[in-house]
Design a protein around this nucleic acid. Structure first.
Lengths: 225, 225
DNA sequence: GTTATATTTAAATCTGTAGTGAAATGTAAT
DNA sequence: ATTACATTTCACTACAGATTTAAATATAAC
């Protein structure tokens, strides 16, 4: 008994593995690469860690082609992770406790694209202006959309040549609505970073919006953030 | 944030520290030596680990003379520990889930003496027969008691010469009643082990009662276990 | 005052396991 | 078929951090 508890605790007590568990807390299934990206480590390493979590039945996999989607194996894991996260020293707790205007819920990265309230607002705006239209489980870019994105410095043709999904909706756990993912979502995030609309904060998925970014977001998307 | 979570997870993710946390789950305060005994490691090592837990505010100390009593600093720690313990693989779960007849609640060691239902029954029996009588926060052994223990092979005089507390009550977390601790409690446990009344199970505080032990416990204490 | 017990501190050592590099496997796109 | 991407497997290395050795401090017992 004592021994098994020790094993379990050391299992979750690793920087990378705790990062995986913390990332999965949003309930979504992530691929190994995404988890590697988030934890800022190599795919081999993530693979090793995921294996350990699999063997302990803390996570489960679902194979889809060459992707493997990982998620919690059971809700108890989420409860445990939350209970432990709840122990982090006082003053930083608000980022977790769930107030609706904390940075991580307002604007963050989701793998390689924008998420959170801002991510959802931008996506809504693009749909409303008919720059993108939902088709099946993807987005198509309209003719006006193509011009709009070109104006932002994003060439749609080039993106479509990439192997990865061009534009797809991604469910936002804090907003419970979809935001723009795929190559287009990634390109948009990159462009915003390049042009200093937004800046990445150290050690968090939260994103800071510059005043330049605020102005331009209003100009392009008619949103106030 | 991510960084702090990683730190916290690795803090609890150590064999010895998880053992400490698991031991403290009964809500009692333990001394450093007791925790070292439980975790089967050296006092220096326990001291180091306790320091780390202290700094992270997972436990708190209370000094009493040359003893230092450690306990959880807040109930949230217990919740987290329980939530994690709840994740240990299936078939062994019943030892934790709390059914009232599981081995760990029935008969176990508490540091160096007997606890659990059996520990409490034996103590009750000794009091009822007036072999021991509660005085302040200790037990006195009566004249008949002295003869009784001698019959069992325990020499009261020798025990009284030891530096440690001779006989004291210890609150049982599973039974919510006191059981016999101190030098006398330890001597009783030892004697029972020597004479094969009981056997220690590997990797658990649970204790197995032999059929010889069952007969003798009825003979000496009039209890059926 | 001396000895035993409880605990901590500091420095030295050892070790489990995370991480890396190289290569294999298995899908998907063209 | 060939190239690209996603992921795993294996063997090797490195190092953080656990443990040990040794000594200090502090309280209690005699």
């Amino acid at each position: 008994m004592k021994e098994q508890i020790g094993e379990l605790f050391s299992l979750i007590g690793d920087q990378v593995r705790s990062n995986i568990l913390w990332t999965l807390l949003d309930g979504k299934a992530y691929t190994a690469s995404e988890l590697a990206f988030n934890a800022d480590t190599s795919p081999q390493n993530i693979s090793m860690h995921l294996n350990k979590l699999l063997q302990a039945d803390l996570v489960q996999v679902e194979r889809q082609g060459r992707h493997r989607y990982y998620r919690y194996s059971k809700p108890e894991v989420a409860y445990a992770v939350e209970a432990v996260v709840n122990l982090v020293p006082q003053k930083n707790n608000k980022a977790i406790s769930g107030s609706h205007d904390d940075p991580i819920r307002h604007c963050r990265t989701c793998y390689d694209h924008l998420a959170g309230k801002v991510g959802v607002l931008i996506t809504d705006s693009l749909i409303k202006k008919e720059f993108i239209v939902p088709v099946d489980n993807t987005f198509d870019v309209t003719f006006q959309g193509e011009r709009f994105f070109l104006d932002l410095g994003i060439k749609i043709n080039e993106l479509k040549n990439k192997k990865r999904a061009f534009a797809r909706p991604c469910l936002d756990w804090s907003e419970r609505k979809h935001h723009l993912a795929g190559a287009l979502g990634a390109a948009l995030l990159n462009r915003m970073l390049e042009q200093d609309w937004i800046r990445k904060k150290q050690n968090t998925r939260a994103i800071l919006i510059t005043s330049k970014g605020q102005h331009l977001m209003y100009h392009y998307f008619k949103i106030s953030v």
